[in-house]
Design a protein around this nucleic acid. Structure first.
Lengths: 174, 174
DNA sequence: CATTTATGTCAACGTCGCTGACATAAATCG
DNA sequence: CGATTTATGTCAGCGACGTTGACATAAATG
């Protein structure tokens, strides 16, 4: 429960003129590094079984949560070049994890969907991450989770945050 | 201040049987992705001016906070192979940002230090990250920051967390 | 003196970003 | 209708950064 054996000096309470200490900033940066690395390590292992990488997971994730996403829409979320995405998407399609359907309104569009295999593989990838989040959220408690969310949101620029929150809120699944 | 225009449903309060919702888990995972990307984007730009990458920043950061770190110690923190580190460390040394000194007790060791140029460049790299953290910590408030830290800590496995907290607590600088 | 440890280095490989250019099909505009 | 724009795909080439496996050297250690 308590991980504060080595007490971190994160906070610097002086109400309005609330300025984080040098130490708090360094600790925050290092926690971002260590935390993100832990968060991604399990799916990375699974992905390497199949010559996939983290980018494949990201594509599967967002196609999964937003079925019918266009290629342009996915490019926008991932913020990579068309060529980078193509090298990820093509194998996923060839391997039968992602399916493309021609758009009904706009027949230039290739709308993206997960196949059953795609859904299964995506769930296998995200299961360990969900387990990590579940454990962390449980042990940290609802208020800590609120804080976690709040700080990560504020890490983004205004515009990125707007887009990210739109994406997060716009999931078509559960 | 308030970014909750699109209210996220993060928390699932049922006291003891506190289980995060499906939606909360997905949101958490996506925030990790978007947040980390935002966090690294500024230094990434600066690094690309010089044919450096994120790995160079990490090396500079940890050498900066733990001057006199051995190569093995840095390998342990970064958890990469010797060869991966070598390809990062060599240019930093050649470019005069990192200096090696033979260990006094153990003359096989090459202890790592930042040169003045190294300190300056590292500060340039981390400045935008510190600015992000400062803004986020200020706006989110001390309790949110506590929660942020707590959740990220709990994201790690027992062992990794122990090591990370040791590294974080063991900074020889401020 | 033999072994282990700390470090460096070589070759080869794969993922995943990037740029720039070009091609096709479909929508849209004048 | 014809010209332009849009959505997508694809080719060639490059760089960063991770991997494995093998080998070399110098210094510490038993």
């Amino acid at each position: 429960m308590t991980t504060s054996e080595a007490p971190l000096t994160f906070v610097c309470r002086d109400e309005e003129q609330n300025t984080p200490s040098e130490r708090a900033l360094r600790e925050g940066a290092e926690l971002m590094f260590f935390g993100y690395r832990s968060f991604t390590q399990d799916p990375d292992k699974i992905l390497s079984e199949r010559d996939y990488g983290r980018a494949h997971h990201r594509a599967l994730h967002f196609i999964g949560t937003q079925p019918g996403l266009s290629v342009a829409g996915l490019l926008d979320i991932l913020d990579v070049t068309k060529q980078s995405l193509a090298r990820v998407l093509k194998p996923l399609i060839d391997d039968g994890l992602v399916e493309q359907r021609v758009g009904e309104n706009d027949r230039r569009q290739r709308l993206l969907f997960l196949t059953d295999d795609g859904v299964a593989f995506e769930e296998r990838l995200s299961a360990p991450q969900r387990a990590r989040l579940t454990r962390a959220f449980r042990e940290a408690g609802p208020d800590a989770v609120e804080g976690f969310r709040f700080v990560l949101e504020l890490m983004m620029d205004e515009e990125q945050r707007k887009q990210a929150l739109t994406v997060i809120a716009g999931a078509k699944l559960p």
